[in-house]
């Protein structure tokens, strides 16, 4: 099943995106910490897009798609006409360096990398597509309604 959400690129909408992910994932047998990690990973990518790539411009929009299969969640985040994030130029920062240099930024993608099993970014002429995947035990992604019914 695919769950779709589209919002304008404004920082105030980050909370709405988090609510969307939370509501979708509460349909599965995941605990609150697992749900929060997925919410966090999506939030971090969307924050980068909205605050940096789109420069908080509400005339631009992003889409969040959540695709669930029997043992995997895939999060697809698409922005259009925003600055291109090139993963080839991304150097994973060292936490000790961030602490030493007293930096406030640079932690978001570290979190995403530690939470997700796989993160890919594709770019064509007009859009960036982030794909993040996380595997779970098959039963975890059973729908609560089905389990209750049985």
């Amino acid at each position: 099943m695919i769950h779709y959400y589209k919002v304008n690129c404004h920082a105030d909408n980050l909370k709405l995106i988090r609510e969307f992910v939370k509501v979708v994932l509460r349909d599965f047998i995941l605990n609150e910490t697992q749900i929060n990690q997925m919410v966090l990973a999506v939030d971090e990518v969307c924050t980068n897009i909205i605050c940096h790539s789109a420069e908080n411009n509400p005339d631009k929009a992003l889409e969040v798609n959540i695709i669930d299969t029997f043992d995997m969640l895939e999060f697809e985040i698409i922005d259009k006409h925003c600055a291109h994030f090139d993963p080839a130029n991304y150097i994973r920062p060292c936490l000790q360096t961030i602490v030493k240099e007293r930096r406030k930024g640079g932690i978001g993608l570290l979190l995403v990398g530690n939470i997700m099993d796989d993160v890919q970014v594709n770019h064509d002429n007009t859009q960036n597509t982030w794909r993040m995947r996380k595997s779970f035990a098959p039963l975890s992604l059973s729908r609560l309604a089905q389990v209750n019914f049985e």
Binding site: V39, T47, R103, G105, G108
Partner: peptide, 8 residues
């Protein structure tokens, strides 16, 4: 809830 900006 806390995001990376808060951790930062």
């Amino acid at each position: 809830y806390i995001a990376s900006a808060g951790l930062g």
